[in-house]
Amino acid sequence: MAYYAKSKGQRVVDWSVHYGLLACFLFFALFPLFWLFKVAVTPTNLLYSEGIRMWPSETTWANFAQVMTDTDFPQFFINSAIVSGATALISTLIAAAAGYSFSRFQYRGKAIIIVLMLITQMFPLVMLIAPIFRILTPLGLTDSLLGLVVVYTAFNVPFATFLMQSFFDGIPKDLEEAAMIDGNTRFGALVKIIFPLTLPGIAATLGFVFTAAWSELLFALMLVSSPDAVTFPVGLLTFISKFSVDFGQMMAAGFLALIPAAIFFFLIQRYLVQGLTAGAVKG
């Protein structure tokens, strides 16, 4: 195929369009976060009096201080971290085992299990709240963090399993067979050879499940009522009272809630980028 070198003008146009589109996307994605922060640092008395401005004439950290000291937000925050962390770990562990099994073994009933897992993804969550409430109540799992972990895990495992399966499918079977001939058991080959190669997939799955659990509102709202077990998305609703909404504190709490997710993604981002692009091209 002939290759035609692009002229300098054409390259400039390409560059401008490329980065222009990226800038538009970034603006669209990040502007709500900026607005969250802007409202969080705006003093309450200026919130409505200044009209719409890109930056307030005065800023304050008072909303953050009040959220941390005068509300139950630290408790909600810890609850969310426990629920999301546990859900991410347990779901990824189960999904990795199930994904490996789907990827490597042929057995009776495998197709049925896969279809059933797909079916679980077809129902709107709101349809399932009542039956799940009925199931969890006699087990004593309503109003508890453990109940949320169980429900979130159940809902995240199918998708996480398919995600992990695709990563295992991308690793040649020859590698574990070579390891088994070299002296490993199958499990040893999985742990020592396959597991290190699946780290990007594990990071992607952890990230996906963690964010899903971190921001889940519907089940948390329906299954939990005591302040001890409230997660932060539900906790944000406490800033809405009958006659007013404390936007400053709500935005400060929301901004604080971004921090653990940001830290989590910062820690796994190296694997995540590999994980999300793995298998896209022949390496």
Partner: peptide
């Protein structure tokens, strides 16, 4: 099991462990 047969195999795809150096591959 394969590990107890005391045989070695060279695969079509070579099946080298990508996260190990050449030395680690050979000595594994």
């Amino acid at each position: 099991p394969p590990r107890d047969r005391d045989i070695a195999m060279v695969f079509q795809s070579y099946a080298l462990y990508p996260h190990m150096s050449v030395e680690e591959n050979i000595s594994y």
